[in-house]
Computed example of a mutant assay.
Amino acid sequence: MDYAGLDYRNIRYPVDRPLTDEERAHRYRQKATSNAPPMDFLSVISLNSSYIELVDRWYPIKGFNAWLGACIAALSTAISCVVVWAFFYAPAEPDEQWMFWVMPIVFLPITLGMVWGGWWLIRTECGRWTHYPMRLNRKSRQVHVFRQDGTVLTVPWDDLFITLGTARAPLTGTTYDLRAHVLDADGKTVRESFSLGYTFPGKAESMDKFWAFLQPYMEAPDGDERTYKHLEDGMLMPLDGRKEGWRWSIARAFAFMGHWPWMQLLFCVPFGLTAVGRMFAMATSKQPQWPADIEAANVIDPDDPYQLIWRDNGPLGWWELWYPMICTLLGVGTFVGVIVAMFLTMGD
């Protein structure tokens, strides 16, 4: 999956560099509207007349690194144990003794390195934060970003340089996001970056659609009303004041294939495991909490007619929850069955 910019050591996008020509060419200007059809891509946590709160770019694909890292770490640990056992206990002919010195010297560092690699993948998602929210206030025109280390970036909306961001990953190829740069006083040097919007899978045009959703909220006089009408029949992420539950972990893991049920069944193994990894990641991570000064600067009017949170969602139906749940059980069961069959074959 595409985890650009995420690392348990808080590695970020490249900064302290000049803007590129490509970034300048694909800039989204704050006052410029889009003719694309607006789409929110399941990115909204809460909405009101004061602010809109969004999920981070890694939230939609959360869970993949957790299960993949666990498999790599478990397999590598097992191989490491076999290598150690063979060195001390496996019988060998005198002319084969050299092999038992080569195994720990050559293979053990490799397998232990893979154990560390698996743990690194697990730690990108587990034992951290459930998500990294962004809060965009249309009244104060301030953007608050919850960083990976738990600190908060606050920057004026009008000062952001917003452009089409790209990333490449072995499994996904080129992906796109709505990248926001905080520039130095010279207006050319990137000091910090974050993603306002992301979808997987998606094309460059997907960010045009997300900009057509987000820009009116911050710029149009009736932006709160327009955004409310767009979202009132949609789905908001169940993260406001709570952790994501196991049902939503399943629904969200399969959501991007919602229009293709046959794909959910065909890829039930990796995405069923992603759902389980997502549950574990959510259970072991902390809920982000905005500092008191940020909450004080983002007050909601009790009589605000344009408030929406996850409690306003409709119920998850057959295709949103129950069918993905069946695919999850089938996928996890298939994976476990294959592993058991492999061990039985090795025993024979």
Rank of each mutant, 00 (worst) to 15 (best):
W129L: 09
Q215I: 06
L308R: 06
G241E: 04
P288F: 05
V145A: 06
Y323P: 02
A296V: 03
I309A: 13
S46G: 11
R168I: 12
K31D: 15
L75D: 03
D303T: 11
L273T: 02
Q264H: 08
P305H: 09
C81L: 15
W248D: 12
H259M: 13
K203Q: 15
L6T: 07
N48M: 03
P221Y: 13
V143T: 07
G187Y: 05
E205P: 03
C126L: 05
W101R: 13
V338I: 15
I11T: 11
D208H: 07
E205D: 10
L108N: 04
R123E: 12
L316R: 13
L19F: 05
D16M: 12
A283D: 05
R138G: 08
T175G: 10
D303V: 08
R179E: 09
P216K: 04
A204F: 00
R252N: 15
W85I: 09
D21G: 09
D222T: 03
A25C: 09
L164D: 00
T166F: 02
R147M: 15
S140D: 07
G337R: 13
W322Y: 11
C81S: 08
A73H: 01
S193E: 00
A90L: 15
F256Q: 12
P60T: 06
R24V: 04
P109E: 12
Y198F: 07
F87R: 10
L321G: 06
F64H: 14
W98R: 04
M114N: 10
Q289G: 06
W157A: 03
F267P: 02
R168P: 03
G347E: 11
H181Q: 03
I45S: 00
L164Q: 01
M279C: 01
C126E: 04
C126N: 03
R242A: 06
P221H: 14
V336M: 14
K229D: 14
E232Q: 14
P238M: 00
G150Y: 00
E53P: 02
F161D: 04
D7Q: 04
N48W: 03
A297D: 13
K188W: 10
D222A: 05
R278F: 04
G118Y: 00
E22Q: 11
F107E: 12
W318C: 11
L183M: 10
G173W: 06
P91M: 00
T174R: 09
T174V: 13
C126D: 04
C327G: 00
Q148G: 01
W101Q: 15
T274D: 12
G331Y: 05
V299E: 11
Q97V: 14
L153E: 02
D7T: 07
P261F: 06
D149L: 07
D56G: 00
G202P: 02
V152R: 02
I79V: 12
V106R: 12
T163R: 01
D56M: 02
D348Q: 15
D293H: 12
G117I: 04
L6C: 05
Q148I: 01
V190R: 00
A281I: 01
W262I: 13
F88I: 10
G331R: 03
